[in-house]
Design a protein around this nucleic acid. Structure first.
Lengths: 150, 150
DNA sequence: TATTGTTATACTCTATAACTATA
DNA sequence: TATAGTTATAGAGTATAACAATA
């Protein structure tokens, strides 16, 4: 038997909790649309970044994505094993690896970009264009490193 | 030597990525303020919920927090072991467990609520009261289950 | 038959420390 | 000395399957 579920007033206005619930909804939609592609959000973002800046170094990608460079290693290993991206040596700095998409990577990313666009459009439509833009602006201000987190 | 870091234009406007970065910033501030309390966000939210609805069932709490009831079990085990919350039998339904705060739980939560208030105020101040409220409204609309995620 | 709480388990994401080879 | 990439490892958070007790 179904219990009355109206219960339980929401938690006191909390940015953290509101972000969590929103991200769950957005993440669920992402997963539903990318179902069958076997690409996770971090991998998709890495592919986008590499396409946009061919030859980018791993440390730049990890900084841009907000993940530790140590955790980027297996992510790239998988993209490389699947033939979507490549690591190439950098003549100027033999410690570094420069990242490039393969032809297959470009083709795959084109397909994924279409999925992502539909995903984004779903929520843009839900909010309307003005509020969609406003939301992105507000979220960027939350993440603005101009304020120290200490 | 520090590399020019201005590089790498941001990813194409993406709600998912913007949420991720915002949540990282907010989560970092939460962690900094709750440092030494050894309370994670989920535990804190559970304590708030139990205080607000004494006698609430585990399944209600897990639904309200958006976590599986299976994952609530160890979370509550820890709160109970630390003497902050209690599971009590429900006369009407001998399968269920009703949740209550202990006196220590109330005292601890009062202290934590003050920390959380300062945490929330930090970001409210960063946005201003109108935009803070607007953000909470927009995030709630993203999470609104009135739209199916399929 | 369905629900409540539980156990066991696995997968992903994240974090730290330590290593190598270069700079 | 510091940096780029790497390895190993540990900790959270989350997911599914299956079970006992009860409804």
């Amino acid at each position: 038997m179904m219990q009355d579920d109206s219960s339980l007033a929401p938690l006191p206005a909390s940015i953290g909790f509101a972000l969590r619930r929103a991200q769950a909804a957005v993440g669920d939609d992402f997963a539903a649309r990318f179902n069958g592609e076997a690409i996770r959000p971090g991998q998709f973002a890495a592919l986008q970044l590499i396409k946009q800046a061919p030859g980018v170094r791993q440390s730049q990608v990890s900084a841009a994505l907000g993940i530790k460079r140590t955790n980027l290693v297996p992510l790239l290993d998988e993209l490389e094993q699947r033939g979507l991206a490549q690591r190439r040596p950098v003549p100027d700095d033999r410690r570094a690896a420069a990242l490039y998409l393969t032809d297959a990577g470009h083709a795959t990313l084109a397909r994924l970009d279409a999925l992502a666009q539909a995903h984004e459009a779903r929520f843009a439509a839900r909010l309307g264009p003005n509020e969609h833009a406003a939301l992105l602006g507000l979220l960027a201000r939350l993440a603005d490193p101009a304020f120290d987190t200490a």
